[in-house]
Design a binder for these strands. Structure first.
Lengths: 355, 355
DNA sequence: AGCGGGCCTGCAATCGATTATCTTGGATAC
DNA sequence: GTATCCAAGATAATCGATTGCAGGCCCGCT
């Protein structure tokens, strides 16, 4: 099995007699074959009215014929505009090296859609913060991007603030907090946590547990929300830190639930992924959902509707959030300033709670 | 709620007396404050041995102090090397605008890991082929990237071949086919389809159905594999085209299974996502899995182990595939040529088949 | 003292497109 | 017939970093 892409110059794809003999790689090359100057070619390709309509046509046809495409590096250098947005996923507190979280990936997909629509390219960087603020400034200061989107604050909120103080075109997905410098779009996580817990309590749960590692600020706020709801109802809320990485999740949950001291009957999960694992463990240990134990997820990823039973969860507006992020970023690129946005989440009741 | 990133020049983050008065934006600026020439600064920052070790130290310290970072556009233009790999997802036959397929997203995550490790940045483009070959050449010919990875051939294999004939640093995830020009890494889809069907047959299924739209070549090969296994066993295989887009999947499957003419007892699904939907529909219509009907998925995404019951599926080596793709691409950037790779998939037996 | 040879560093060309400014030919006006 | 103006295109400076080549300096050797 071989690719054989062929170094020879044989013509591919039929009798294409137009394959040109001379190679046209630069504006100057094209200018030569067109019999004009490079400047004129540049203007013609940009569709400027300064060149004769007829000449413009002719040059554009030639460009197409020779498959000429202006070098973006040169263009961007000169015009001081890259048309590229950097998207950074800080892997602060996660041990795992991989960008695997389906929530981030989903958000990324929507961001890609929005940016493409606005004519921007997307440069993806996986950043591993190492104590310095360098991981972000390496992107913002590189001259490679017109703006930067950060997906998730992890535990790097302070550093993001520092950078945001001097770099305007920066929008972050995450949790808003009083006094924060950077523009953030996200969900009101505390409210989400509260909604989840209140719903469980209203459905009769008495022995609550929160499943999720609270190193990242977003999860921490969800935990706080749940805790405040539990406190208001006079109920206990156990905190069981679960890594967000997929592989370790199952065993961790199993270990936690195997401890026989308390038999929880209501689980507030920090993500749908954790909730799915919890469902599985509960099933394997013979506890019926929602009769013996109830479960609430967080995110409302598409998969949440497909679990068995379908997962009751807290919905985050991912698509809408992505749209706002891109809008805000564009505004900031134009020099305007933008407000942060904490979107209220909503409770989606399915079948893992008794409602 | 406001960000208040502050247009004023107040110092943020404590008594940082070192914030410089002069702005150092270019090599020349730094050269001025260092009292050397721009060329020397360039060499010093690149760590070249040509400059005196002491001078080099001094310049590097200055650069750090002023937060100077060389403009990448200029650097890349001059050195004719961008350090960026384009990753393209052609949305050929998919109606839906969004990059939402979890398989692609997972592969993308692994590619990001591998590329980052090799010191490359990743530029993501969502391409919507419009009949011309322009969607790919726009990327390859832009001078923006050192190489291109294409995730999924969709129905654009021919066009990819055309481009690959003249553009070497190109590696594609997809299905290998005799006589193909472009270098492809992927799974032996036909074998996968065959494995799935054979397993169902061996487990006693008699009335088989293939769930998935076969416009894309990969799915088509899976279907062929399943069909050949069915034929060998003398059994019928119905083909039910299901869109890969998440939203429409559920209803489509429901509609297909509601048709009372045949009651299928074995489903070969083109993806785990489809399999999950199928499980759900079967459950809702009161058919027990695996007793009344058996289901086999494709991909073995992490979620496959979390379904209820856990999904029997055909595993594709995503992480390994990503590694090979990046290795091959690097080799091709160096001018070497590389062979295509069709990895044998493996059957992962869980609980949706009787086995 | 004179000369050759390293070792550093400066100079200037270069990557390729963009764009402000200038040139030219011709049409129009008086 | 000459002045004026306009359209169309040429010229050259520019973006900012890289790098081949030349040159200055210091050292050692004869």
């Amino acid at each position: 099995m071989e690719t054989g892409a062929g170094d020879s110059n044989e013509v591919i794809g039929g009798t294409d007699a137009s394959t040109p003999a001379v190679e046209v790689r630069t504006l100057a090359d094209l200018a030569r074959v067109a019999g004009v100057s490079a400047g004129t070619v540049s203007r013609a390709l940009a569709g400027k009215a300064l060149v004769n309509a007829e000449t413009r046509e002719r040059i554009q046809t030639l460009a197409r014929h020779y498959g000429f495409r202006p070098n973006q590096m040169a263009s961007k250098l000169r015009s001081r505009r890259t048309g590229v947005i950097g998207v950074v996923i800080p892997l602060g507190h996660e041990k795992r090296q991989s960008i695997s979280d389906p929530f981030f990936l989903t958000l990324l997909g929507h961001l890609a859609d929005q940016l493409t629509e606005s004519g921007y390219d997307l440069m993806l960087s996986r950043a591993i913060p190492d104590g310095t603020s360098d991981w972000l400034e390496r992107i913002t200061g590189s001259g490679m991007v017109d703006g930067v989107l950060v997906i998730g604050q992890s535990d790097q909120s302070g550093i993001i603030d520092q950078v945001a103080a001097n770099y305007r075109p920066l929008v972050v997905w995450g949790n808003y907090r009083e006094g924060q410098v950077h523009c953030v779009v996200g969900t009101d996580n505390e409210m989400g946590g509260r909604l989840a817990a209140e719903h469980l309590i209203a459905s009769g749960a008495k022995r609550l547990a929160f499943l999720g590692d609270t190193t990242g600020i977003e999860i921490d706020m969800r935990h706080r929300g749940a805790a405040s709801a539990a406190k208001a109802a006079g109920l206990p809320l156990a905190h069981i830190p679960i890594n967000l990485a997929t592989t370790e999740m199952g065993p961790q949950i199993k270990a936690a639930l195997a401890m026989p001291d308390i038999d929880y009957d209501g689980f507030v999960c920090a993500s749908d992924l954790i909730a799915m694992s919890a469902l599985r463990v509960l099933y394997e240990t013979g506890r019926a959902v929602p009769d013996d134990a109830q479960v609430v997820g967080f995110d409302d990823l598409p998969m949440a509707a497909q679990t068995m039973p379908p997962l009751t969860t807290i919905r985050q507006e991912i698509a809408g959030g992505a749209r706002v992020m891109v809008e805000n970023l564009k505004a900031r690129i134009e020099g305007e300033s933008t407000d942060s946005l904490a979107m209220p989440p909503s409770l989606i009741v399915r079948r893992t709670t008794r409602a």
